[in-house]
Design a protein around this nucleic acid. Structure first.
Length: 418
DNA sequence: ACCCCTACCGTCTGCTGACA
DNA sequence: TGTCAGCAGACGGTAGGGGT
């Protein structure tokens, strides 16, 4: 940005007319010439104008900014929140002085990822709109980053179909943009794997997980390797390949032990518990869940998942005292964390442990199931519609039973994409 | 009416080279 | 070395025109 344009920008920002800015320093006509870059004013005049506008004379160096963007991108790629915030604070004050469209687009694109890191999924809307307007002028490289981050955003919001579409475009522009960075490729494949897991496309999820894993192994990125092993474990478990699932859980466990990745150790134990529970080895499942809790002192949401699993398995074993005790803790914690979904699940098991009666029916019909339906969670809707259907079957109310079992069936069909 | 731009002309200032 | 003319560029003033 030339000094004339900079002066005009700041004058208009301060709502000053040329006359107001010029008075006592120079003539209006001469100011007009300066702003239109038709003349080069003396340093003294420029200093006086800048001082009245309260801005610095220092010109921005686009190359320096480009370098800072690159560092910022790296911090965002590595999920280094502290460094990303520090670099945002370096970059953002300079952004108003940028007139280079590519740099501005880079900034908007990086802002999408920055907001994702801050778990703010609403603010990127404006940046996305701004980029979409000038999409046809974006380079292939910038298109790659745009689609990757928007895919990432949709994933974080739980819109997996949209995420998949953008990640597909990102993969296309990754090739066209000739991007050589291995970590970028690994990150893209990992994101694709995560999305395919959510879409229950397990063959594709396994393919992209393995690609990402081999890239991260070459980068010695152990933390991510353990996360991918866990993901592969989940995929194999879902396609009933239990032995392969266990191999990957063990790898995830081994790596996380070595690098003291406590959160991952909790997740691995949780998944091993789930696996054992599936095989009806309930006692072993409980042992894994209890171990999982040892690693989850601070992660309350994850703790709720484990406590719920414990309640279910104690209930399965008819050990009602233990189930009730964990239930109490689960209800307290879910209320405290304002986790409505888990709260409803605990309430359902509360009735199951105490007594399934008319009050339970009302709670299911009027509160729990409509909530799962409204939040668009087909898994919980299917699971608990079946739960209610089975209950009606037990008490020989077959018409109601048929209604809720059909509801469960519809939800299951939605899950498997029929 | 107000703001801004532009063209044109005049003044001022600093630099350079010629000359006494 | 001092002086002076010539020149370029910075800057000011005015007028006219366009846009809102």
């Amino acid at each position: 940005m030339t000094i004339g344009s900079k002066i005009r920008y700041h004058r208009m920002k301060k709502n000053l007319t040329q006359e107001e800015l010029a008075t006592g320093i120079l003539s209006v006509s001469y100011l007009s010439k300066i702003e239109n870059n038709q003349t080069t004013a003396s340093t003294e005049v420029i200093e006086l104008l800048c001082s009245r506008l309260g801005i610095s004379l220092i010109q921005n160096d686009d190359e320096t900014l480009k370098k800072t963007f690159s560092e910022w991108n790296r911090a965002l790629l590595k999920n280094d929140c502290k460094e990303a915030i520090r670099l945002y604070e370096v970059v953002s004050p300079q952004i108003i002085d940028i007139d280079d469209v590519t740099l501005l687009n880079s900034y908007h694109i990086l802002m999408i990822r920055y907001y994702i890191l801050l778990k703010d999924y609403e603010s990127p809307r404006d940046s996305i709109r701004a980029i979409e307007k000038g999409y046809k002028n974006l380079s292939d490289k910038l298109r790659f980053y745009f689609h990757k981050f928007v895919g990432n955003l949709h994933y974080a919001r739980g819109s997996y179909e949209e995420s998949n579409q953008h990640l597909k475009d990102a993969e296309h522009y990754f090739v066209l943009g000739s991007i050589l960075d291995t970590e970028e490729k690994a990150d893209l494949f990992y994101l694709k794997a995560l999305t395919f897991v959510q879409l229950r496309k397990h063959a594709l999820a396994i393919h992209y997980s393995e690609e990402a894993l081999s890239l991260y192994q070459s980068l010695y990125h152990n933390k991510r390797c353990s996360e991918i092993h866990l993901l592969l474990g989940v995929c194999y478990r879902r396609i009933q390949n239990i032995s392969e699932a266990i191999i990957h859980y063990e790898w995830a466990n081994e790596i996380s032990k070595n690098i003291e990745y406590v959160v991952m150790r909790g997740k691995v134990e949780q998944n091993l518990g789930y696996l054992k529970s599936m095989e009806n080895r309930t006692e072993e499942a409980i042992a894994h869940y209890l171990k999982s809790l040892e690693f989850k002192h601070d992660d309350h949401d994850s703790k709720l998942t484990t406590i719920l699993a414990l309640v279910k398995d104690y209930f399965k074993l008819k050990r009602m005292d233990e189930a009730a005790s964990w239930l109490q803790e689960g209800i307290f914690l879910s209320k405290q964390q304002k986790n409505t979904e888990k709260y409803y699940e605990f309430r359902i098991y509360g009735y199951a442990v105490e007594k399934l009666d008319e009050e339970f029916e009302c709670f299911m019909k009027d509160e729990a199931l409509p909530y799962f339906e409204n939040t668009g969670n087909p898994h919980l809707l299917a699971q608990y519609s079946k739960f209610l259907g089975n209950y009606y079957q037990e008490i020989r109310k077959y018409k109601y039973a048929a209604h809720y079992l059909t509801k469960a069936n519809v939800a299951y069909e939605k899950i498997i994409g029929l």
